[in-house]
Amino acid sequence: MKLNRRTFLKTSISLSAAGLALLESQPAAAEWSATDFAPVAFDQTLKQITKGKPVVETAKINLEIPEIAENGALVPVTVTSSLTDIKTISLIAEQNPVPLALQLNISPGIEPFLSARLKLASSSFVFAIAEADTVCYIVKKKVKVTIGGCGG
């Protein structure tokens, strides 16, 4: 294909327009990021999730998780909150090879409620972190695992 200056400009404009349309269609959806889900130490994951915002312990998030999990491959967890200004809820297991388990983006259409099942490699603290505009709320609970969830 012969590509002179005029056609090049035209195609680049239409491409950027398509790119913009794509961006506008999903403004709230945060991309899956390999750095957040990297197999790094817990402290680093915590830093990436809180993005330098002050971390406040709160009683307004309710993290329901069994104190003793018989099977680490399947630990039911439920997070509810009475906070209204939170944007994301993240669940982090301190001792897992990849500490961040999942991250839920709260859109205006849903209540801050999440129920899921996690894998826990060994007995550890499980953190629920709710990100608001200026601060990050955090709750933690100790879970004792009698059979590990990683390594079959």
Binding site: A29, A93, P99, A101, Q103, L104, N105, F113, A116, K119
Partner: peptide, 19 residues
Amino acid sequence: IAVTCNMGAGVSKDPYFAF
């Protein structure tokens, strides 16, 4: 879009979610 949920492999096999 009501829910976007990013996850790693720390979620159990045959995942269950409630929103």
